[in-house]
Design a protein around this nucleic acid. Sequence first.
DNA 1: TTAATTATTGTACTTTTTACAATATATTCG
DNA 2: CGAATATATTGTAAAAAGTACAATAATTAA
Lengths: 230, 230
Amino acid sequence: MDEKFESYFKAAVSVDNVVFGFDHTGLKVLLIYRGADPYRNCWALPGDLISLDTNLIDSAEKVLQDLTGLEEIYMEQIHTFGKVDRHPYGRVFTVAYFALIKIEDYHLHPSSWAEEAAWFPIGEIPELPFDHNDILAYAKEQLKSKIRRQPIGFELLPKHFTLTELQNLYESILETEFDVRNFRKKILSMDFITDTGLKQTSVTHRPAKLYKYNAKRYSNLINTGFAFDL
Amino acid sequence: MDEKFESYFKAAVSVDNVVFGFDHTGLKVLLIYRGADPYRNCWALPGDLISLDTNLIDSAEKVLQDLTGLEEIYMEQIHTFGKVDRHPYGRVFTVAYFALIKIEDYHLHPSSWAEEAAWFPIGEIPELPFDHNDILAYAKEQLKSKIRRQPIGFELLPKHFTLTELQNLYESILETEFDVRNFRKKILSMDFITDTGLKQTSVTHRPAKLYKYNAKRYSNLINTGFAFDL
DNA sequence: TTAATTATTGTACTTTTTACAATATATTCG
DNA sequence: CGAATATATTGTAAAAAGTACAATAATTAA
């Protein structure tokens, strides 16, 4: 390699994950409490610098797996942030991902980081270090946009869910309201949300039917030119 | 900074631009003929390594401006590629952008690179170095998806265009066909493509009316909750 | 048995999408 | 100058999708 290239090879690249979760109180984001400099003792997005011998996507997945203990998490790269002064230690580009996890599953597998992580309601995010507030805002917009056109909402719900839960999820993320009858009609007409035959238990009122997402049917539909849009 | 961080600061980051153009023969991509190593004497996406003192977006814009001489080019970041072995000189992440330019304007401002750049029809792209073929494929998908929901098709057409040209553009990019009457009805009903009062000249048949995109009307519509979708 | 709570379902109306072909306006050529 | 050629422009009826709206059903708790 020519010497003139050397000056370029002095940057670092990190990944930062915006991890979304959902429960009956609404949409939440997983933040970690930093135990090391820079910005020690701050809440921040979970992320890490990338080792030179690790692929980008592997690095993003590893951060999440260390943090949650979960495998097969829905992740998507959303944007790369590269302002010159965004990191105090030097030139650090960060590649942001968003991830959707089922909060229940997360509680089942606490990891070494568990004590230092917490869910924050989307409306109560504190001031974060670096440009993490920007990243989070960007991720939220992406989620709003993606969830309308791709069947990813289910990633935030238990495997079996009620239509009311599904509607609450959409209303919460899209910050809007749907008519109960029309919402159900539309969802069920799409034919890839199927009745499990089961019902809620331990509720103090009429139990709702439990449904599940049928990925196979969805991909069949896609192949016929169908486009999900809510 | 702690010494343990030093090993991370040895990566380089580049930008690569997928520049789309359109003429009556269809969608085209601008490639450059590399005059320097690595991959000297190959057609490739126009891109460059990022200096440590340059913001990401500025770097992407500079590459395009050097190449085309144009200012105010429509650009959008699409994805970051970071496989370990994608560059022969070391660990290089690349942030890909797509850009839309009016081919006519480009011809008006040849730059220092002009002799080494050429438009390739989207269906006749040669084998490219690095992972540029992957980047291009990704960009093409993004374009297909974006052009349906955002009024960016006009960036590829002259300021004044006919509805037939507009329809050809959409049909070409989306690889589908529209009914002439329905297409025009839909486009014109959106109310932000306005008649200039002008007509084509120098055509050997009935001249078509010339229209233009009205950005102000579009943003007004957006504020009323309107969503473009073709 | 009644009260309380949430789940579930249908219909008429409006809007949007779709399918489909004849007429209009310009140039070129004989 | 008229005919041939080439593309531009326009409407309507039928189907599908979206919207607005409220009564009944199923369960637990008192």
